[in-house]
Structures are given as structure tokens and as C-alpha cells.
Design a protein around this nucleic acid. Sequence first.
DNA 1: CGTGCCGGGCA
DNA 2: TGCCCGGCACG
Length: 517
Amino acid sequence: MSMGRRIAKRSIVGTRVSAPDKLSGIFCTGVIQAMTTTESGPGRSITKYSVRFDSGSLPPQEYFKHQMVGPGFQNVTEVGVLKPGQVVYWTHQGREVVGTVVRQVSADEVVIRSHWNSPSSHIETKKSLEEIRLIESRKSARLADSDTVNYAKLADSCDRKRSSTSWIDVPNSSNRKRRPVNDSCDSEMETENSSSAQVMDECTAAMVLMKLSGSPRSPKFAYSKSWTDGTSSPSEGSDASSWKSAVRFNDFGNTPTPSPPLRTLSRDDCIQSDASDESEDERLDNGIISIGRKKRRVFRCTWRGCTALTPSRKMIEKHIRLVHLGPKPLGAMDLSDHEEDFYYTEDEADDNAAVDIWSSSVPRQFHSYQEESRYLKNFSKNFDPTMSHSDMVRPPHEDPDYKSTTAGAYFPHLNERPSVIRQGSGRTRSVSWSESGDTATMKSVKSGRTSKPSTRRVRDGKKCRKVYGLEHREMWCTQCKWKKACTRFNVQNLQKDVVTVTVYADDALADIQVLSA
DNA sequence: CGTGCCGGGCA
DNA sequence: TGCCCGGCACG
Ligand SMILES: [Zn+2]
């Protein structure tokens, strides 16, 4: 928890790569644990890399660099062939998604089925190899965080230290570094690497399936043509068995894109009782999705920057509750403030129009710290612009960031990562900083036969730089200042640190005014 | 072209 | 370890 997300400067040894299992041909992730070079003639030598797979069931094997996929090695396109069952990653809505290859349809396209988090959700999409990664990106691992941590594995994969030779071969060419850069030794306990653990299982599982059957074709997923344009999405609604997953899942579900849970609303078109919502939720929870062409109601979250769009009222409320507002006190369980009602609107749209609808009504909300500052300034001249609640609340995320900052006045008491600060009702208005959904980024992948040409999107995930602006560099988190991965506005924080503060309340004024820049 | 941030490099 | 920055992938 005490942070320390290290930025290791490593050599080739320790690099995360994905190499094909000799038998199945399925790429599995692992770490380069050694490399050996042997003379192969006059002045020529060949280097082989020993890869230790994440999956314990696979013995380490040696590969040439052109056989592996990873930073400095091949990229997926170069490999060109992905076997069915191959676990792949790609970015959707700014987040990394995991899936498996169903089949390859052309030289550079494969049909993949996203896993999201429930194996039962079968959403198939066609993706070009260019968008696919075989290694979870470190960045995404953080973004797509999951809770369980496999310490054993972490420990296991963290030992680099052995390097047979001294010459560090700066790998291959064309391959950009950025991509799947993954640091197996991110040791930093805590959530960091969990997903890879889970992935390892999927990987081996996939191989087992391959070996046994031959083709992992699941006959029971609803294949939707309207979704083959690459915009896949998770199935919404989660039945929060645990809070964590609920939040996370929900977050995933936030999509400005015609979110997947689009099914035929036979009766919902006319009925709008909670009862129908009920069943909707259930169907969706089961991952059963069918797509239709009709008019349908959608509920859009109007929370600042959030792009969530759900097919049912219940879901949107759940979303708002979980993602933005935070849990309500147990006592007030059912009969509550219905505060959620303030943060969503109801619309009607047909499947394809979903996007447009969404984009056409992005709530009048602030998209940056500065923006809001400005707004508040006008709103009430009495407020010191930089003292808007936003200023106050947002920064204190993260860790010891604010210690030395000139802005020491920023709610120092909030420095210990305010989780969820709920406050009573009264005539106050809540504002919070959950960035959750707005990392939305939609990309109309080629082959867009279904997608509408012009679709506006909501800027990608804002980080300190964007949020505070260059002029307020002092407020950035240290990592941002150093041009490193932002630690303040990463999903973990965003999800967990939903800070809520009261503003506009008379009594709050006092508090706010005390602090001046 | 702005952003986010990896990899390097330098105290 | 901080701290800075070139440079690049993406949007
Ligand atoms: Zn930051």
C-alpha cells in the first residue's frame, strides 16, 4: 500500500515475453531467465533465450528471439498466426481486456471471445492482430486490477539476477518498446500482478483444451453481427458478490459505445416497471445477450465524465451507487436518499444510435480541474477559484505526494487516501472525483460496416497533467512530474478513492474558505 | 499535435 | 533513489 511502484531499469533478462508452447503452438507468457549465445560460424553467433513460463506446468524452454513475442522481440502481427484458444489482450475503453482466440479469419484478423471476468460471457468480436497483445501490459495490469494476489507466483517470477552473458543485446528493430512492457518483478506486493496469475491459468487451460479436443468452440454464445466491428464490451451488471468485484465490474461495463448488453427489448419497450428491469438484470448477469434492432431505453450516467450507459434503471442505479456514490450505510439499505436519481438520465435509442445519443448529451460537466475551477469561480465569487472543492479533494490521493508540495494546505487530513467519504444529506450537493468511466475511448475499428462514421468520444483517461494542467505542475503526482506512470489517477485509485465532498452547503463554505492558495 | 509514460541518464 | 527528459505510441 505504501506505494513504490518501481520503475526498474532492466536488462533483457527478466523481460516478459510470450512464447509458443511447442506442442500446442499457443503462446504462453513467461519471463526470460537467461540467454546463451553460441558461435555459429566466423564472427557469427546465435542467441537463445530461456523462457520460464508463468505457468508452472510448463518447463522452461529455449527460443530464438524471432520466436517470441514481447518488447524487443516480435509483435503479434509479425507472428501472424494465433491458434484457437490463445489467450490475448487488447485495449477496450482504455482498459485491458482478456480474451481467447476463437479462430483466425484472415492473415491479420482473428475472432476473439472476451472473458471479461465471467467465463460465461461470450462476446465475440473480430480484431485485427495489430490490436492484440499476447502479454498483459503492465500498465493494464494495474488498470484492470483484480484483487487476488498470487504471492507464490510473484515470488517465483521475481528473481532475474542471473545473466549468463554480459552483452546486452538490444533486441530487434521495429518493435516499439512501449507496448507490452511488463515487469515481472513488480514485486510490490499488493494487487499488482494478480491478473497474470489468473491469466496463467487461462493459458494452460486453453492449451489443455486444445490438446484434448481440438477446437475450443463454444456453441452457446450469442454471436452478434452488430458487434463484429470491433467494439466489444463487457456484459454489465454484476451481482456483487463482493464489493470489489462489483465496482470493478461495473466500471468495466461503462461504455459509451453501444454497450453489449444490448438485447432485444421485446417487452421492455413498452413496459418500464422495475419488474422488467429485474429480469433484465438477471439475464445480463448470466451473460446471455442477444442483440436486436429495436428501440430501447437506455440509462446514462451523468456523473462527471462518466460514460456509463446501461439498459436498465436498476443497473444504472447500481452503477452510480457502486462506482460513484459509495455504499450506503447498511441501515438505510432500501429506503434511502435515492441520491442516484440525480445522476442519470433516461433515453431511448435504437442499437446503433446508442453512441450518438451518448455523445450528444455528455452531461455539462467538468472535464478538468481547471474547467471546474473556472466554473466555480463564476458560480460564486466568494470562492477562491483554486480552492474549489475539486482542488481540495482530488489531490490527496496517492501517498506522500503532498508533503513537500507548496500546496501544503490541501486538506492534509485527507492525505491518507480517503476511501469513501459519505456525508449526510441536508441541502448539500455532492461532488466526487471518481474518474471511473471516463477513460472511455472508443475506436471504430476498421471493418466498420455497422459502426457509424462519426462518433465523438470522451477524451481518454485524464491524468494529473491533463487534470491540473501544465500551469499547476506542482499539483501533479510525482510520477507524473517525472513523466512516469501516474499513480494518482489509476483505476485502482479511481475506483477505491471515490471522494465525496460537500460543497455549496452554507456550512461548507466556511471550511473551504479557510484554505487559500 | 497533446498525452501518457518507458527507458535512459545523471546526480 | 530522486529527478529530468528524449522519444514514441496513441488517440
Ligand atoms: Zn499523476
